[in-house]
Design a protein around this nucleic acid. Sequence first.
DNA 1: ATAGTTTATGTCATATATGACATATTGACA
DNA 2: TGTCAATATGTCATATATGACATAAACTAT
Lengths: 102, 102
Amino acid sequence: MKAAKRKKLEEKGWKVGSAADFLDLSPEEVAYIELKHALSISLKERRTKKKLSQVDVAKIVKTSQSRVAKMEAGDPSVSVDLLVKSLLALGASPKEVAKAIA
Amino acid sequence: MKAAKRKKLEEKGWKVGSAADFLDLSPEEVAYIELKHALSISLKERRTKKKLSQVDVAKIVKTSQSRVAKMEAGDPSVSVDLLVKSLLALGASPKEVAKAIA
DNA sequence: ATAGTTTATGTCATATATGACATATTGACA
DNA sequence: TGTCAATATGTCATATATGACATAAACTAT
């Protein structure tokens, strides 16, 4: 990974190893990031399957388009809480949330 | 439900319906509470199975005993984020987290 | 009983997440 | 090409979650 890219990632809040990229992440940290990523994917899938725009979802979830974009991008500023609440608001059941994670 | 109990619950941040108790909770809200509850249970199970005290867990998770107690009690002040992070810190895999939810 | 251990509850200063907004970028289509 | 809808990115004031602390209950012995 190039230094510039690493710097940019770090500025955005991600932890990035200098030597072997992700090697300084503990297993939990990796698991947490993966879990969040899985929820992001699931959210975007649900939205596109329903042919909704991010603005539409923002209205349903009672947030803003920019936050929806960040959710789908897996931005570090979004919590698992918000992702889960959004999935539920889009009609997912807890079981389906679980499926998205596993 | 008696008025006194309802008042106490509401003071603690829970939404409680006056007529039919939980009837004013939307399906998402119910799902969210259930999901959180499932994570709480799972956390407590993991802790007790390992014969750890809340203080022990607090050290592992890098939080305080009181917060661990609140996590296990499903206190509204604790986020799904923290519950998930704690489970992962106790060695759960994302798959196991999913299993806890479903 | 009472001492020791664990868990529960209440509060608070600080940290982090949030919605909103502006603006930039992308993509589709005439 | 330019125009319009969708999505992405950056920032910020406010809301919410957090760890820490004190203290109270609840257990478990002796």
